[in-house]
């Protein structure tokens, strides 16, 4: 077996070997080589020293209220989501299987409404035509009403005290 340290790619095998990550047959072959190769042996020793050094780095204790803070944020998230859901639910698209029949029904109703509306609305007429439709009796009644109001107004003035007195 060639020395793994000859190429970088194979040297990475030594890291895996030191981490005991290699398949058993490859591990056995490397073990045989390392036993005879001072450079590889030293490489593995130094790599293991690195891991031992890294093992000394203990993590900091976690804040006791970590979960409480997280759940408070989740609760707030749910509250906002619920509020938003209620606000936007009328605008939210429905699943196609529900939306299609509703949309089809709405279109039918709309079309029917348009057709009925067209049949009911008379053709637009000029304003003059509406004036011509007034009957002579209606005009007489209106003139009578105006005369009654005028008389009432005169009577009220004659009953009122003289402002000069």
């Amino acid at each position: 077996m060639n020395c793994p340290l000859e190429t970088r790619e194979n040297a990475a095998l030594l890291v895996s070997h030191a981490a005991r990550e290699l398949a058993p047959d490859m591990a056995v072959r490397l073990d045989r080589h390392v036993a005879q190769c001072a450079a590889c042996s030293q490489f593995i020793e130094r790599q293991q020293a690195v891991w031992e050094a890294l093992d000394r780095w203990r993590p900091e204790p976690i804040s006791p209220d970590f979960n409480r803070r997280l759940y408070a944020r989740i609760e707030e998230l749910d509250r906002q989501a619920s509020w938003w859901h209620r606000l936007t639910s009328p605008l939210r698209p429905m699943p196609a299987r529900h939306a299609m029949p509703i949309a089809a029904t709405a279109m039918l109703l709309l079309a029917a409404g348009v057709l009925m509306d067209r049949s009911r609305v008379p053709a637009a007429r000029p304003v003059q035509a509406q004036v011509e439709m007034l009957q002579p009796e209606q005009v007489e009644h209106a003139l009578d009403d105006m005369e009654t109001i005028r008389q009432f107004d005169r009577a009220m003035r004659s009953d009122s005290p003289d402002p000069k007195m």
């Binding site: 970088r8 040297a11 890291v15 790599q47 020293a49 031992e52 050094a53």
Partner: peptide
Amino acid sequence: VKSLLFRAYETLRARLAYMA
């Protein structure tokens, strides 16, 4: 990843291997 790890451990060996 293997390449990243190899380079990283190379740096760490140079700095930390003396601690053994």
